[in-house]
């Protein structure tokens, strides 16, 4: 899509990010792991997303915030291939891609951890971690290799609260379940992990564990797109923020450009008049 004058602010904000300064051309999709340009999605007469532009850099935590019904879920479902956008383009490392199925998304390296976690309660941790990509030996399940890999992955992510990897998932706490779901994404060597409200149902200490886990993901070079209602969580982990309002991204940029007040203002009104904020508004 052609840049409109209204987009300039966004570009300025992006180039002011030291990681991407000097690119000269502003927000070029090749600078990012995933870039969305002009993504729209309508369900019949209902326009759920309009002209969404979003850039997700490598190895950083991007927080997608917005009020209920702002279109956050519609957006991540488009990225994870649940449904194809009605129009617009997606670039993966600068190359145009079409993510029309969940499989296409996971082949690119996009893993989505939904709010409901999509774990099978009746299966144990190992079985859940490898669901759909089981290791086999002579065509038969190779339980030992899978169990060793599970133990290793949980150790790498410093998930130490799980007693046994052969525990059924139904016996785990909310934070442990979240950890298993995230570890599953890591084990699939995902480049981009999308987390939908990862702390929504968690207590204080479990929230802290999950936030620490998100930071460890980024430190391993994995990009994280986290949807959250909880601004204190967002400011604790995010490197960048993108705010959705009525189906569009109305503001995005490095976390330093925002504070809680300006973020709330943009979430609720779609614009910030907050003097102290240098947030870019389009």
């Amino acid at each position: 899509m052609t840049p409109t004058p209204g987009l300039q602010g966004d570009n300025v904000a992006l180039t002011s990010d030291p990681r991407h300064s000097g690119s000269g051309v502003g927000a070029s999709p090749s600078d990012f792991l995933l870039s969305l340009r002009g993504i729209s999605k309508s369900f019949g007469a209902v326009q759920a997303m309009t002209n969404v532009d979003l850039d997700i850099p490598e190895g950083q935590v991007t927080a997608l915030i917005g009020d209920n019904g702002a279109g956050k879920s519609t957006l991540i479902k488009a990225i994870s291939g649940i449904w194809a956008p009605s129009s617009g383009t997606m670039y993966w490392r600068g190359n145009e891609v079409h993510i029309h199925t969940p499989r296409a998304a996971s082949e690119l390296g996009i893993a989505t951890v939904y709010q409901d976690l999509a774990l099978c309660d009746n299966l144990d941790i190992v079985q859940n971690m490898f669901l759909g990509m089981e290791d086999t030996k002579f065509g038969l399940l190779d339980e030992i290799t899978m169990e060793l890999a599970t133990v290793q992955t949980l150790k790498d992510l410093a998930v130490s609260t799980v007693k046994s990897v052969r525990q059924r998932v139904e016996s785990l706490s909310g934070g442990q379940r979240q950890a298993v779901a995230v570890a599953r994404a890591v084990m699939r060597e995902s480049k981009l992990v999308i987390l939908d409200e990862p702390t929504a149902a968690l207590g204080v200490s479990q929230t802290a564990q999950v936030l620490a886990l998100i930071k460890r993901l980024a430190s391993r070079g994995i990009s994280v797109l986290v949807i959250s209602h909880n601004l204190s969580d967002v400011f604790a982990v995010a490197d960048r923020i993108a705010v959705m309002y009525l189906g569009s991204i109305v503001s995005s940029g490095p976390i330093a450009n925002y504070d809680t007040t300006s973020a709330v203002e943009i979430i609720t009104t779609g614009a910030s008049h907050h003097a102290a904020s240098s947030a870019s508004i389009k």
Binding site: C120, E134, L141
Partner: peptide
């Protein structure tokens, strides 16, 4: 049921069909 992917997937579908679908089964 215990040694093949097919068996594992039957359990997974019975436990959470949506999770199984999202896992690409």
């Amino acid at each position: 049921l215990t040694k093949t992917k097919a068996g594992r997937y039957l359990y997974a579908i019975g436990g959470n069909r949506e999770a199984a679908r999202r896992a690409g089964i």
